[in-house]
Design a protein around this nucleic acid. Structure first.
Lengths: 109, 109
DNA sequence: CCCATTAATCGTATAATTACGATTATAGAA
DNA sequence: TTCTATAATCGTAATTATACGATTAATGGG
Protein backbone atom coordinates (compact mmCIF):
# COMPACT_ATOMS: atom_id res chain seq x y z
CA UNK A 1 0.00 0.00 0.00
CA UNK A 2 2.41 2.63 1.20
CA UNK A 3 5.75 1.56 -0.13
CA UNK A 4 8.80 2.54 1.84
CA UNK A 5 10.91 0.93 -0.85
CA UNK A 6 10.04 3.48 -3.49
CA UNK A 7 9.28 6.51 -1.37
CA UNK A 8 12.67 6.72 0.21
CA UNK A 9 16.26 6.84 -0.82
CA UNK A 10 17.83 3.44 -1.29
CA UNK A 11 20.68 4.08 1.08
CA UNK A 12 18.41 5.25 3.86
CA UNK A 13 16.17 2.25 3.36
CA UNK A 14 19.07 -0.14 3.68
CA UNK A 15 20.36 1.56 6.79
CA UNK A 16 16.90 1.53 8.30
CA UNK A 17 16.56 -2.17 7.59
CA UNK A 18 19.86 -2.84 9.28
CA UNK A 19 18.82 -0.83 12.30
CA UNK A 20 15.61 -2.78 12.43
CA UNK A 21 17.57 -6.01 12.68
CA UNK A 22 19.15 -4.58 15.84
CA UNK A 23 15.91 -3.24 17.24
CA UNK A 24 14.95 -6.14 19.47
CA UNK A 25 16.81 -7.08 22.64
CA UNK A 26 16.49 -10.77 21.84
CA UNK A 27 18.43 -10.24 18.64
CA UNK A 28 21.12 -8.23 20.37
CA UNK A 29 21.34 -10.95 22.97
CA UNK A 30 21.73 -13.58 20.29
CA UNK A 31 24.59 -11.62 18.81
CA UNK A 32 26.18 -11.37 22.25
CA UNK A 33 25.81 -15.08 22.86
CA UNK A 34 27.37 -15.85 19.49
CA UNK A 35 30.18 -13.44 20.24
CA UNK A 36 30.82 -15.04 23.59
CA UNK A 37 30.63 -18.64 22.47
CA UNK A 38 31.95 -18.32 18.98
CA UNK A 39 29.92 -20.87 17.12
CA UNK A 40 26.65 -22.19 18.43
CA UNK A 41 24.01 -24.64 17.53
CA UNK A 42 20.52 -23.32 17.81
CA UNK A 43 19.85 -25.14 21.05
CA UNK A 44 22.75 -23.38 22.75
CA UNK A 45 21.12 -20.07 21.99
CA UNK A 46 17.67 -21.23 23.02
CA UNK A 47 19.14 -22.25 26.35
CA UNK A 48 20.41 -18.75 26.99
CA UNK A 49 17.35 -16.80 25.91
CA UNK A 50 14.10 -16.40 27.82
CA UNK A 51 12.06 -17.35 24.78
CA UNK A 52 10.60 -20.45 23.22
CA UNK A 53 12.50 -22.31 20.56
CA UNK A 54 10.20 -21.16 17.78
CA UNK A 55 10.67 -17.55 18.76
CA UNK A 56 14.42 -17.79 18.86
CA UNK A 57 14.35 -19.46 15.47
CA UNK A 58 12.45 -16.51 14.06
CA UNK A 59 14.91 -14.03 15.48
CA UNK A 60 17.75 -16.05 14.03
CA UNK A 61 16.04 -15.88 10.68
CA UNK A 62 15.77 -12.11 10.88
CA UNK A 63 19.44 -11.78 11.74
CA UNK A 64 20.37 -14.13 8.94
CA UNK A 65 18.26 -12.25 6.41
CA UNK A 66 19.95 -9.05 7.50
CA UNK A 67 23.24 -10.77 6.84
CA UNK A 68 24.55 -10.27 10.36
CA UNK A 69 24.93 -13.95 11.07
CA UNK A 70 25.62 -17.05 9.06
CA UNK A 71 23.86 -20.30 9.61
CA UNK A 72 24.28 -23.66 8.05
CA UNK A 73 22.85 -27.06 8.57
CA UNK A 74 25.29 -29.48 10.13
CA UNK A 75 23.82 -32.88 10.41
CA UNK A 76 20.64 -32.54 12.40
CA UNK A 77 21.78 -29.36 14.02
CA UNK A 78 21.99 -25.84 12.74
CA UNK A 79 25.17 -24.04 13.31
CA UNK A 80 25.34 -20.27 13.66
CA UNK A 81 28.05 -17.70 13.90
CA UNK A 82 28.46 -13.99 13.51
CA UNK A 83 29.26 -12.66 10.07
CA UNK A 84 32.11 -10.45 11.14
CA UNK A 85 32.44 -8.68 7.82
CA UNK A 86 28.80 -7.67 7.71
CA UNK A 87 28.76 -6.53 11.31
CA UNK A 88 31.86 -4.49 10.67
CA UNK A 89 30.37 -2.97 7.53
CA UNK A 90 27.19 -2.09 9.40
CA UNK A 91 29.17 -0.59 12.24
CA UNK A 92 31.05 1.60 9.80
CA UNK A 93 28.02 2.72 7.83
CA UNK A 94 25.89 3.41 10.85
CA UNK A 95 28.73 5.17 12.58
CA UNK A 96 29.43 7.27 9.53
CA UNK A 97 25.81 8.19 9.12
CA UNK A 98 25.47 9.26 12.74
CA UNK A 99 28.78 11.07 12.68
CA UNK A 100 27.73 13.15 9.73
CA UNK A 101 24.74 14.51 11.59
CA UNK A 102 26.15 17.76 12.90
CA UNK A 103 23.66 18.40 15.65
CA UNK A 104 23.35 22.04 16.59
CA UNK A 105 24.91 21.96 20.01
CA UNK A 106 22.90 24.77 21.53
CA UNK A 107 19.22 24.86 22.21
CA UNK A 108 16.55 24.73 19.59
CA UNK A 109 15.61 28.05 17.99
CA UNK B 1 1.74 -9.96 27.81
CA UNK B 2 5.32 -10.83 26.96
CA UNK B 3 7.43 -8.17 28.54
CA UNK B 4 10.65 -7.32 26.81
CA UNK B 5 11.36 -4.89 29.64
CA UNK B 6 11.78 -7.56 32.27
CA UNK B 7 12.93 -10.48 30.17
CA UNK B 8 16.02 -8.82 28.86
CA UNK B 9 19.03 -7.01 30.16
CA UNK B 10 18.48 -3.32 30.70
CA UNK B 11 21.40 -2.26 28.53
CA UNK B 12 20.33 -4.41 25.61
CA UNK B 13 16.79 -3.09 25.88
CA UNK B 14 17.97 0.49 25.74
CA UNK B 15 20.20 -0.18 22.77
CA UNK B 16 17.40 -1.98 20.99
CA UNK B 17 15.07 0.94 21.60
CA UNK B 18 17.61 3.32 20.15
CA UNK B 19 18.05 1.14 17.10
CA UNK B 20 14.31 1.06 16.70
CA UNK B 21 14.25 4.83 16.51
CA UNK B 22 16.57 4.55 13.53
CA UNK B 23 14.68 1.71 11.91
CA UNK B 24 12.49 3.69 9.53
CA UNK B 25 13.81 5.57 6.49
CA UNK B 26 11.50 8.49 7.20
CA UNK B 27 13.14 9.01 10.54
CA UNK B 28 16.62 8.78 9.08
CA UNK B 29 15.54 11.25 6.45
CA UNK B 30 14.24 13.62 9.10
CA UNK B 31 17.59 13.47 10.84
CA UNK B 32 19.31 14.20 7.55
CA UNK B 33 17.06 17.13 6.83
CA UNK B 34 17.68 18.54 10.29
CA UNK B 35 21.40 18.04 9.82
CA UNK B 36 21.35 19.83 6.49
CA UNK B 37 19.16 22.73 7.52
CA UNK B 38 20.18 23.07 11.13
CA UNK B 39 16.96 24.09 12.73
CA UNK B 40 13.58 23.47 11.16
CA UNK B 41 9.97 24.08 11.81
CA UNK B 42 7.76 21.09 11.28
CA UNK B 43 6.50 22.37 7.95
CA UNK B 44 10.02 22.47 6.52
CA UNK B 45 10.37 18.80 7.23
CA UNK B 46 6.94 17.93 5.91
CA UNK B 47 7.89 19.68 2.66
CA UNK B 48 10.88 17.43 2.19
CA UNK B 49 9.29 14.12 3.07
CA UNK B 50 6.92 12.05 0.93
CA UNK B 51 4.48 11.68 3.80
CA UNK B 52 1.45 13.49 5.16
CA UNK B 53 1.84 16.03 7.94
CA UNK B 54 0.29 13.75 10.54
CA UNK B 55 2.70 10.97 9.69
CA UNK B 56 5.73 13.22 9.86
CA UNK B 57 4.52 14.50 13.21
CA UNK B 58 4.39 10.97 14.53
CA UNK B 59 7.91 10.21 13.37
CA UNK B 60 9.09 13.42 14.98
CA UNK B 61 7.50 12.27 18.20
CA UNK B 62 9.30 8.96 18.04
CA UNK B 63 12.63 10.67 17.49
CA UNK B 64 11.94 13.07 20.30
CA UNK B 65 10.97 10.30 22.69
CA UNK B 66 14.20 8.54 21.80
CA UNK B 67 16.00 11.75 22.68
CA UNK B 68 17.62 12.10 19.29
CA UNK B 69 16.02 15.43 18.52
CA UNK B 70 14.79 18.36 20.53
CA UNK B 71 11.59 20.16 19.76
CA UNK B 72 10.02 23.14 21.31
CA UNK B 73 7.01 25.24 20.61
CA UNK B 74 7.90 28.63 19.21
CA UNK B 75 4.84 30.71 18.79
CA UNK B 76 2.48 28.80 16.59
CA UNK B 77 5.27 26.77 15.08
CA UNK B 78 7.25 23.88 16.42
CA UNK B 79 10.94 24.08 16.10
CA UNK B 80 13.15 21.03 15.85
CA UNK B 81 16.83 20.33 15.87
CA UNK B 82 19.15 17.40 16.37
CA UNK B 83 20.27 16.65 19.89
CA UNK B 84 23.93 16.37 19.10
CA UNK B 85 24.93 14.95 22.46
CA UNK B 86 22.40 12.15 22.30
CA UNK B 87 23.25 11.26 18.75
CA UNK B 88 26.90 11.19 19.66
CA UNK B 89 26.21 9.04 22.70
CA UNK B 90 24.18 6.63 20.62
CA UNK B 91 26.86 6.49 17.98
CA UNK B 92 29.42 5.60 20.60
CA UNK B 93 27.33 2.99 22.36
CA UNK B 94 26.14 1.33 19.21
CA UNK B 95 29.61 1.43 17.72
CA UNK B 96 31.08 -0.03 20.86
CA UNK B 97 28.51 -2.78 21.02
CA UNK B 98 29.09 -3.78 17.42
CA UNK B 99 32.83 -3.53 17.77
CA UNK B 100 32.85 -5.91 20.67
CA UNK B 101 31.21 -8.62 18.64
CA UNK B 102 34.25 -10.57 17.52
CA UNK B 103 32.70 -12.43 14.63
CA UNK B 104 34.50 -15.61 13.75
CA UNK B 105 36.04 -14.65 10.44
CA UNK B 106 35.98 -18.06 8.88
CA UNK B 107 33.01 -20.15 7.95
CA UNK B 108 30.52 -21.50 10.36
CA UNK B 109 31.42 -24.83 12.00
C1' DC C 1 13.32 -50.06 10.57
C1' DC C 2 11.95 -47.28 14.64
C1' DC C 3 12.87 -43.78 17.92
C1' DA C 4 14.93 -39.60 19.76
C1' DT C 5 16.84 -35.15 18.85
C1' DT C 6 17.07 -30.96 16.60
C1' DA C 7 15.40 -26.99 14.47
C1' DA C 8 12.48 -24.97 10.87
C1' DT C 9 7.90 -23.90 9.74
C1' DC C 10 2.81 -23.60 10.35
C1' DG C 11 -1.22 -21.78 12.49
C1' DT C 12 -2.89 -18.39 15.21
C1' DA C 13 -3.50 -14.73 18.54
C1' DT C 14 -2.12 -10.32 20.13
C1' DA C 15 0.29 -6.11 20.04
C1' DA C 16 2.78 -2.52 17.81
C1' DT C 17 3.69 0.27 13.83
C1' DT C 18 2.44 3.00 10.11
C1' DA C 19 -0.46 5.65 7.31
C1' DC C 20 -4.14 8.96 6.21
C1' DG C 21 -7.88 12.37 6.73
C1' DA C 22 -10.29 14.96 10.08
C1' DT C 23 -10.27 17.53 14.13
C1' DT C 24 -8.42 20.44 17.62
C1' DA C 25 -5.67 23.97 19.80
C1' DT C 26 -2.79 27.85 19.61
C1' DA C 27 -0.96 32.07 18.01
C1' DG C 28 -0.55 35.79 14.95
C1' DA C 29 -2.74 38.78 11.35
C1' DA C 30 -6.44 41.51 9.71
C1' DT D 1 -13.16 39.28 17.26
C1' DT D 2 -12.58 36.61 13.24
C1' DC D 3 -9.67 34.37 9.93
C1' DT D 4 -5.46 31.90 8.70
C1' DA D 5 -1.59 29.09 9.45
C1' DT D 6 0.70 25.66 11.98
C1' DA D 7 1.22 21.41 14.09
C1' DA D 8 -0.40 18.04 17.52
C1' DT D 9 -3.73 14.60 18.31
C1' DC D 10 -7.75 11.59 17.35
C1' DG D 11 -10.02 7.90 14.94
C1' DT D 12 -9.42 4.27 12.04
C1' DA D 13 -7.57 0.93 8.85
C1' DA D 14 -3.96 -1.91 7.19
C1' DT D 15 0.34 -3.96 7.82
C1' DT D 16 4.06 -5.89 10.38
C1' DA D 17 6.12 -7.94 14.40
C1' DT D 18 6.10 -10.97 18.17
C1' DA D 19 4.96 -14.86 20.76
C1' DC D 20 3.57 -19.62 21.64
C1' DG D 21 2.31 -24.53 20.90
C1' DA D 22 2.00 -27.95 17.45
C1' DT D 23 3.71 -29.97 13.50
C1' DT D 24 7.07 -31.29 10.17
C1' DA D 25 11.45 -32.69 8.23
C1' DA D 26 15.87 -34.48 8.61
C1' DT D 27 19.57 -36.81 10.81
C1' DG D 28 21.70 -40.14 13.64
C1' DG D 29 21.50 -43.96 17.08
C1' DG D 30 19.74 -48.33 18.54
Amino acid sequence: MYSKATLFDEHLSRLADAAKALSHPARLMILSVLAKRGTCICGDIVDELPLAQASVSRHLKVLKEAGLIQGEIDGQRSCYCIDGKSVERLRTELGQYLEELPGAEGACC
